[in-house]
Amino acid sequence: MLLVALDFDAEIKQLQATLSSIEKVLDLDAMRAEIADLGEQVAAPDLWDDQANATRVTGRLSALQGEVDRFTGLQGRVDDLAMMVEMAQEEGDAESLADSEAELRRLQKSIEALEVRTLLSGEYDEREAIVTIRSGAGGVDAADFAEMLMRMYTRWAEQHKYAVEVFDVSYAEEAGIKSAEFAIHAPYAYGTLSVEAGTHRLVRISPFDNQGRRQTSFAAVEVVPVLEQTDEIEIDENDVRTDVFRSGGPGGQSVNTTDSAVRLTHIPTGIVVSCQNEKSQLQNKASAMVVLKAKLLAKKKAEEAALKKDLKGDVAAAWGDQMRNYVLNPYQMVKDLRTGYEVGNPQAVFDGDVDDFIEAGIRWRREAEKADA
């Protein structure tokens, strides 16, 4: 049934009001000013003399421009819809009105997704994110699952044009990965992805079992915010043990012929981080230190809040503490156990289609925070 003129009018005005509210919260003027500044840095002839900084600058510029384009694109679509409705009503064009209603529903969904950003008001929510994935119980299937999750999040980032910087991947002997650590360079990446932290569970017919039995496996996802220079995290050099080793690839193959990979162990806490994405040992050490500081901040904040799951979650990657199930057999389903949100197309999810899960998680977290207040 088509909406009457008054309904269209009210619906469009509501969309415009919501966009106006979002614009204030996101502070698009500040975003545009930062885009202009980053554009000048990108134009500098010596930008790529420091590759790590160049990657950060170009990634940040791309992400910010994407955010602004997303907002202005929706704004333009709302304006176009208002004109489409006006012309259709003047001409009595029922088909155009039906198209307008379909576009209205699409816009409502897109703007609602953007509105979720305004719910990210935590101390570190606006930061970029460092994601760690570890295989858990389930042997080779768990290692394969961990690699599937890494691909899922990197595909999600690619779809949003967010830069991904891989720090370290530890490959399993037969297939998959033991662990991976990577950064997603985008505004609000931490606030957005922090709801993905926890234990993920996969149920499927194992491709590694010659008897074709169903296998349950687990992987843990940890998300911490990237620190800035103003963050007060100091590390005593005497508290850190540095080990260097040769970078490795799948199946034990050597990636570099020199000992350029770096492993840092923070002795007081036992936190260990590695980096092998750069050819230079110094660059790898610098990147590993970024990750180590982020994890120490997460630990510090969790202790201050007296709640282990405050920032990164205390995840064991085993039975009883999973937050999401991915079921490929005997039926097809992905279900979040906290929010109840579920879909029947696991392949799309593994291809990076996780926005609806993230949105549901952010809303669930906000309601939980209200209940605890």
Results as ranks from 00 to 15, higher is better:
F208M: 14
D209A: 07
N210P: 05
Q211W: 04
Q211I: 02
G212S: 13
R213T: 05
R213K: 12
R213I: 07
Q215A: 15
Q215H: 15
T216P: 09
S217C: 06
S217H: 03
F218S: 00
F218R: 00
A219Q: 01
A219M: 01
A220E: 01
A220P: 02
V221N: 00
V223W: 04
V224P: 09
L227G: 09
E228C: 14
E228N: 14
Q229T: 09
E232M: 06
E232R: 13
I233F: 04
I235Q: 12
I235G: 12
I235A: 13
D236M: 03
D236K: 01
D239L: 07
D239M: 07
D239I: 05
V240R: 12
V244M: 10
F245D: 11
F245H: 11
F245W: 05
R246D: 08
R246L: 11
R246I: 15
S247P: 15
S247V: 06
S247A: 15
Q253E: 10
S254R: 15
T257Y: 00
T258P: 04
T258G: 08
T258I: 10
T258C: 03
D259V: 02
D259W: 01
S260A: 13
A261F: 03
A261N: 04
V262S: 10
L264C: 05
H266I: 15
H266P: 14
I267L: 13
I267V: 13
I267H: 00
I267E: 10
P268N: 07
T269F: 04
G270L: 09
V272R: 05
V272Q: 10
V272G: 06
V273S: 03
S274W: 03
S274K: 14
Q276I: 01
N277D: 06
E278G: 00
E278M: 02
E278P: 00
E278W: 02
K279S: 13
K279E: 11
S280A: 11
S280L: 10
L282Q: 13
L282N: 13
Q283N: 10
Q283E: 08
K285A: 12
K285Q: 13
A286W: 00
A286I: 08
A286L: 11
S287N: 08
S287G: 05
